[in-house]
Design a protein around this nucleic acid. Structure first.
Lengths: 126, 126
DNA sequence: ATATCATTCATCCTATTGGATGAATGTTAT
DNA sequence: ATAACATTCATCCAATAGGATGAATGATAT
């Protein structure tokens, strides 16, 4: 499961591959078509396509001698969703932590109230 | 603007760095603390942290001799949002294309109706 | 059958990256 | 002042990734 996310993130982490996806958002295209606008050998583009394919961000449909590629939006969705989920989970943890620290502060304040001994305790960063 | 997204995606495309972010979701930590669970030299972890910092996924707060790191959730949000935006844009383009193709098909059907000459025209892939 | 076109395979080269190591820098404690 | 600690800097190394090139494979057209 996570290996897929990994492949997708790796695939998206390259500007050429993102450009290829953008190109495909205008419709199916052959390897040659995709390569045309790039100042790069056809073979290099072919390699990038394979990376996108392994990440399931792109689908290949062979028709005769040409390979027609298309974007696989679902995977892109899944990737954004994964990041968003991480964000939520991490944020939740930090909130819990913050509440704990605030409770601790209140306890400290009570103790200070009893013993008149103000101690400098720094608040954790945002 | 896009250079930031690029750095964030590159940073997220590594499992060690994602693990570091997860670690930081439990709260601020020093470089040494972050490095502890990893079977990896402190220096290597330090390098990963710099990558996360450049991508603004992590913030550093120097307090005395220790460097306290924390997750910068906003950037994570921005990254997910960027992917989601791409998805939306690309999906919209594909929808337009699909409508165009359907309109074309209907036109073909009308022409066939007038001239009795059925031509095999293949529908584009999903 | 042959030439042409579309694509991948196999290599090779270079730059970058993940990692290790030892020295250098800056901070705290004694 | 000195020792211990926290971290980075400067290198080095191996593995990987991006890119190029020429040959091989497969399909189409003549």
């Amino acid at each position: 499961m996570n290996a897929n996310i990994d492949r997708a993130l790796v695939a998206l982490a390259d500007p050429t591959r993102r450009a290829i996806l953008t190109r495909l958002s205008f419709g199916e295209a052959r390897v040659t078509d995709i390569a045309a606008p790039f100042d790069m050998a056809l073979n290099s583009v072919s390699k990038h396509i394979r990376v996108l394919e392994r990440a399931q961000l792109v689908r290949r449909r062979r028709v005769g001698r040409e390979h027609l590629l298309s974007v696989q939006l679902a995977t892109l969705d899944a990737t954004a969703a994964w990041i968003e989920a991480q964000r939520t989970q991490w944020s939740a943890r930090l909130n819990i932590l913050d509440e704990l620290l605030q409770a601790e502060d209140r306890a400290d304040a009570r103790r200070r109230g009893r013993s008149r001994r103000p101690a400098a305790k720094k608040r954790s960063a945002r």
